[in-house]
Design a protein around this nucleic acid. Structure first.
Lengths: 346, 346
DNA sequence: TTTAGCACTCAAACATTTCAAGTGCTAAAG
DNA sequence: CTTTAGCACTTGAAATGTTTGAGTGCTAAA
């Protein structure tokens, strides 16, 4: 696990060259371009050792090396140099995110700016930290239920569940109890996951009614989540997506709310979260890296700003851009939001 | 322009086979699959004539024929058989578009349902027919203008324009006059086009201030337009998009609001509008067909429901699906919208 | 411990061949 | 005059073969 200086230098050069060129990096390139004062043969020997240790990979025997997930991780944790944003980028951020408009508009601005600067798809979620206090299920007719969610802060959300079979009053009561037991206290932003647990536990008992209620709550929540994508078109510039199948999978993945939600909610909530390739539990995301950051304003949690792209991404620039934007939100320079219609009142 | 029965039968068979198979249709296929009681040689002669008349095209000399834009147009206008929706599709529509939720939710439902059934990208726009009554430009500071738009119905929209140079009061007055002259009475949904005309006419005079004001209004309007895409992932199943360049162009086009806005606003506002391939003035859309339909409820214009896809699309099914949904909106079976926060009050 | 040198591997690029689909034309048949 | 059988011809796609160059691992000497 301890790498000597030379190995560090080699690893960092491989990572940086590969990030830039997207081509496997060979020993000769390293010697010439990165002024390593050894012969290519020596570098080859070192690279072989780095490969055996799991930091590098070789696409095929006569190719150069590319970083493995472990290699990227080591680079990010130990080798990466901080990146100062260029004045151009700073100006662009400051001119575009001006704080005008409601939260939705600002979120959109942030997504647009980040995806422009980094030329990568960007996802911004606006989370609702308000928690569920009480859930009521009201029978409107034999086959129609009204679900009402009351929050701690006093807002009310409601949605309908349509059934194909009639449902007994007693079942509704039971259902209400289960929902309250499992969900009260849960932040709205985590309701999705909590609901999945509920149906996994109780599906055998009241399959249809419970299923419909859960789905209608999920649907209502999905409207609330306000996930904003931007810059999807940037993937076409990246050689990782030269294959149509890859594009297809990526687009499908991004459109699948659950995958992204889960990925983002897995990130530790405190600071900056970097999940590289196979570190992600979701197999479909194993070729991608997600870097995300919570944004706060006046100690109020606004949401999560995330960048998703191939493992081969410019980690240094991405991180400094995200951090800069986070600071911008913390600074008092921004105007206050004019109006915020996050959730309709009860 | 008059085609005899045999030519009609051949043209319609070519169109339908090509829609299904995406492969150029040869004379042998037609004889065998469509029971045309002539030899392949006769069919070949007829196809040659149809090609000379412009109804068919030949990708290369040893390939079968594919319909030209003119061929599709003739098919749609004269040959196409009405398509009854399957019970499965009808059930699916009825179960999914239930009229619950606000207008935004319903629009999303419509987009989702249509893209699912037709397996094609779908765009639904919610138009705002309220018209501009008065525009005020207020100087907040030397380099910051507030633009206020008052509507006939009494709602107020406002946005900021940031300048890099200071601007004289007199210029602001002049600008206000020009904006009011050109825009008052314009429906919000057409503001985009009207603004383009304004800057084209007056750009020489007050380039910066006017430009910024126009842009900020446009940005504000774009939030209002509520364009909802759905089913973008469906393009990957179509051989038209096997080439990555095509996908790239399509995605870029769809993300470019102006292109789609213009394309949709060109469609005649009354009934069903079908714009096939090169019939579209926008060159970038020349390989695509846009079918769209205005949706009304209680004689109130709700918006436009549009399907965009390659010229080779299932015209009959697309049209009947859209029509069915339009009727569903007209029918009184749908619940009334619970609440509608189209635009914030003044 | 480092390095020069060399045999070896493999993907990518390019060239060549083969194949099948489908045509247009001609001349004969209806 | 219309239809059709027959055939030479064209062409893209797929399969196959060839070349090239980048890069490696290993060996033996410095």
């Amino acid at each position: 696990m301890k790498l000597d200086e030379r190995k560090k230098k080699i690893l960092s050069s491989v990572v940086e060259d590969y990030i830039e060129s997207a081509e496997p990096v060979g020993s000769k390139t390293l010697v010439e371009k990165y002024h390593l004062d050894y012969s290519s043969a020596t570098i080859r020997n070192e690279m072989k050792l780095l490969e055996e240790e799991g930091y590098l990979e070789q696409p095929h025997v006569s190719a150069g090396r590319i970083p493995s997930t472990k290699g990227y991780r080591y680079y990010v944790d130990n080798l990466m140099k901080e990146n100062k944003l260029s004045m151009v980028d700073i100006d662009y951020i400051n001119n575009t995110i001006n704080g005008f408009g409601d939260t939705d508009a600002i979120i959109q601005q942030v997504a647009d700016v980040v995806s422009k600067i980094l030329a990568t798809p960007t996802v911004v979620t606006k989370s609702n930290t308000d928690t569920v206090e009480n859930i009521k299920v009201v029978k409107i007719s034999d086959k129609l239920l009204l679900v009402v969610l009351m929050s701690k802060n006093g807002t009310v959300k409601d949605c309908f569940a349509k059934l194909t079979d009639t449902v007994e009053d007693q079942v509704i009561d039971q259902m209400t109890t289960i929902l309250n037991q499992n969900l009260s206290g849960t932040p709205f932003s985590e309701l999705h996951l909590a609901l999945n647990k509920v149906i996994r536990k109780d599906l055998e008992v009241f399959s249809e009614a419970m299923g419909e209620v859960v789905n209608s709550i999920k649907y209502e929540m999905s409207k609330d989540l306000k996930k904003l994508n931007s810059g999807m078109e940037n993937i076409f510039e990246k050689p990782e997506f030269s294959d149509i199948e890859k594009v297809k999978n990526f687009v499908n993945m991004i459109s699948t709310k659950e995958i992204i939600d889960t990925a983002l909610s897995n990130s530790k909530d405190d600071k900056l979260s970097i999940i590289i390739g196979s570190e992600n539990k979701e197999v479909l995301l194993n070729d991608y890296t997600i870097i995300s950051l919570d944004i706060e304003k006046d100690n109020k949690y606004l949401g999560k700003l995330s960048v998703i792209g191939p493992k081969r991404m410019n980690y240094a620039k991405t991180i400094s851009t995200l951090k800069y934007i986070k600071e911008k939100f913390n600074s008092t320079l921004m105007l206050n939001n004019k109006n915020d219609n996050d959730s309709k009142g009860g």
